Amino acid sequence: MRAYRSNDETKSGAVLAPALYMVGEQDVGLSMPGMRQIIDAMPDLVPNLKQSLTIPDCGHWAPQEKPHEVSEAALTYPVGLTKRPQAAETTRSDYVRPGL
């Protein structure tokens, strides 16, 4: 097992993997002070954010409240992403869209 090594990318706190953000439109977390600013800053915090999804008529427990919608989003989100072959010393995954 490889020991964790910090680098400039991990120090930034940014999420570098391709990401899907899902939230229920009635999630009480959205009313927390500062939450709207965090959501607005999402493109800077998650530079590979590929999709944001607000689930209608849904609260905080989206997988339990709207399992079909969450499953559909999770299953269709990664379409078009393929894993790039990695050298053994690579410490994080890189993803590319085919044809790029």
Results as ranks from 00 to 15, higher is better:
H68S: 03
I39L: 15
A73W: 01
V46Y: 13
K11P: 00
W61N: 02
I38E: 14
S52E: 10
P63D: 04
N7D: 14
L100S: 14
S93A: 11
E69F: 02
V96H: 15
P67H: 01
S6V: 06
P33G: 11
R2K: 11
D44P: 04
A88H: 09
E69W: 00
L16M: 15
L16P: 04
S93L: 11
V96C: 08
L20I: 02
A17G: 01
P33C: 11
K50I: 05
Q64S: 03
A74S: 03
S12N: 04
T91F: 01
G80D: 01
L53A: 06
G13W: 12
A73Y: 03
G24Y: 06
Y95R: 12
G80A: 02
P78K: 02
C58D: 02
Y4M: 04
Q51T: 12
T54W: 09
V96D: 08
Q26G: 07
G80I: 02
R92E: 12
P43C: 08
G13S: 13
M1P: 03
R92M: 11
Y77S: 00
P78A: 01
Q51G: 07
P18E: 08
S71D: 02
Q51E: 13
W61A: 00
K83S: 13
A88D: 12
S93T: 12
M35F: 08
V96M: 09
K50H: 11
T91M: 06
S31H: 07
S31E: 06
T90Q: 15
S31F: 03
V96P: 01
L20C: 02
S71A: 08
D44Y: 13
D8E: 14
V79K: 04
T10P: 02
Q51F: 05
L30A: 11
D94K: 08
A62K: 02
Q64Y: 00
L45Q: 15
G59V: 01
P67W: 00
V15S: 05
E9N: 10
R5A: 08
R97A: 06
E65Y: 03
K11I: 02
R84C: 09
A14C: 11
A19K: 13
A62V: 00
Q86G: 05
I39Q: 14
R92Y: 12
P67N: 00
V79Q: 01
R92A: 10
A87W: 13
V79M: 05
L30M: 13
P85T: 07
P63G: 03
V46N: 15
S31V: 01
S93N: 14
G99T: 04
D57G: 01
T90K: 15
M1W: 07
A62S: 09
P47T: 13
D27G: 05
Q86S: 10
P78Y: 02
E25V: 07
Y21T: 08
K83F: 09
A17I: 04
V70I: 04
L100G: 12
D8F: 07
S6A: 09
A14P: 05
P67I: 01
D94T: 11
D57T: 04
E25A: 09
